[in-house]
Simulated assay, not measured.
Amino acid sequence: MDLNILWFILVTVLFTGFFFLEGFDYGVGILMPFVGRNDLERRMVINSIGPFWDGNEVWMLTAGGAMFAAFPHWYATLFSGFYLALFLILVALILRGVAFEFRSKDEKPAWRNLWDWLLFVGSLLPALLWGVAITNLIRGVPIDARMQFTGTFFDLLSPYTLLGGLAFLLVFTLQGGLFLALKSEGELKERSRQAALRAGAGAALALLLLVIMSYGVTDIFSRFLPGILLGSAFITLLLSLAGLYTRRYGPGFLMNGLTVILVTAGFFSGLFPRVMVSSLNPEWSITIYRAASSPYTLKVMTVVALTLVPVVLAYQGWTYWVFRQRVKARDLEY
């Protein structure tokens, strides 16, 4: 296989894995102030993702590193053009990580409430901005013939991309609600279900509108595969809601996870062989061939990836297996 194509697929897989895993992670952080009615319940919510959240973020770092090494021109244009948006994501993730650690340093309610809301903001902002970023890739941004971004932060904001951000946010919130329903019990479990049902109804509407708008705003449906993937994503989202409604949380969680996978794959397959679309001139769009590193670099990276990625997958799978039990109030230390 052409190594340029192989690495485009691998970058897509890394982003897909990141959105699948970090999606429920963000969703739990978003729901925490609303489903946790007291400090004990909020501790249970945090403990449900405590063993996983930092490992999930490794997928984002790996995706960025793979992009930098395999497609340096893509990395340079994306990170310069989306600089403010990515900076906001970074600040939010720092606040989020600090909130996990600092919340328990003081028992004062005001202190813990502050970090609870910073955890909420640190989860909501990345979920929203990642959706904006992905939809901008396919909608197109001002890129000139030298592969340089010539616009501003406000060029990234449009009804279409903001709808994309809202769709990602609601799908992730639904995923977080399903995860909490799997990991909790009692009133916390029921409140998580109700929150997930509300988020899911909004997610279904937002995703449907996003698919419809994609038909008019982008060329994503000029090929057969993206349309099939995005259409299937809407179906799996409805199946997820059906599982949630009937309290079959495991199948619901898997179906919504499949929705995340199908949406990501649909957008990246619609993008291929481009990695960023130029809104100034389609011929100035950055492709996997214009953006790629040397063939030797791609060969070395392929060997390293095939060697180390299975180890990472095995370790993370082991982590989820070890911490698979429900979080129970009686198990928390006081």
Results as ranks from 00 to 15, higher is better:
Lys105Ala: 14
Val263Gly: 00
Asp2Glu: 13
Gly317Leu: 14
Asn256Asp: 04
Leu3Phe: 15
Glu333Val: 09
Leu6Phe: 14
Leu93Glu: 02
Phe268Ala: 00
Phe18Ala: 15
Asp39Leu: 11
Tyr160Asp: 15
Leu125Gly: 04
Leu166Cys: 07
Met301Glu: 06
Glu107Thr: 07
Ser104Arg: 15
Arg274Gly: 08
Val11Leu: 11
Leu163Phe: 06
Ala145Ser: 09
Val327Gly: 11
Leu163Ile: 15
Gly227Leu: 03
Leu128Cys: 13
Val309Pro: 03
Met255His: 13
Ser240Val: 00
Ala265His: 03
Phe19Ser: 15
Asn56Tyr: 03
Tyr75Gly: 00
Arg330Asp: 11
Ala69Cys: 06
Phe8Gln: 01
Arg326Ala: 09
Ala76Gly: 07
Ile5Gln: 06
Leu197Ala: 06
Ala110Lys: 08
Ile138Ala: 02
Ala70Cys: 10
Glu283Val: 07
Leu238Lys: 01
Ser279Pro: 04
Ala203Leu: 03
Ala133Cys: 06
Gly243Tyr: 04
Pro33Ser: 05
Gly17Arg: 06
Asp116Pro: 01
Leu308Arg: 04
Val311Tyr: 11
Asp331Asn: 00
Leu254Gly: 13
Ala63Asp: 00
Leu88Lys: 05
Ala76Tyr: 05
Asp54Cys: 11
Arg42Tyr: 10
Leu209Asp: 08
Ala201Arg: 07
Arg112Val: 12
Arg43Pro: 10
Ala203Pro: 03
Leu298Asn: 08
Arg42His: 08
Phe102Trp: 14
Ala233Met: 03
Thr259Tyr: 11
Arg248Cys: 11
Glu185Ser: 14
Ser192Ala: 15
Val132Asn: 06
Leu209Arg: 08
Ala99Val: 07
Leu129Lys: 05
Pro295Thr: 05
Phe234His: 03
Leu128His: 09
Gly36Trp: 09
Phe34Gly: 04
Pro273Lys: 10
Gln148Gly: 01
Gly202Val: 07
Leu137Tyr: 03
Leu21Tyr: 00
Leu6Cys: 04
Val311Thr: 11
Trp117Thr: 01
Phe224Met: 13
Ile89Thr: 04
Phe168His: 07
Ala203His: 02
Thr236Gln: 04
Ala195Gly: 02
Ser269Gln: 02
Ile9Asn: 03
Ser123Met: 15
Ser222Phe: 12
Lys328Val: 05
Lys328Pro: 02
Arg248Lys: 14
Leu93Asn: 02
Leu169His: 05
Phe68His: 03
Ser48Ile: 02
Trp284Asp: 14
Ile261Leu: 09
Trp53Asp: 07
Pro295Met: 06
Arg247Pro: 12
Leu306Ile: 02
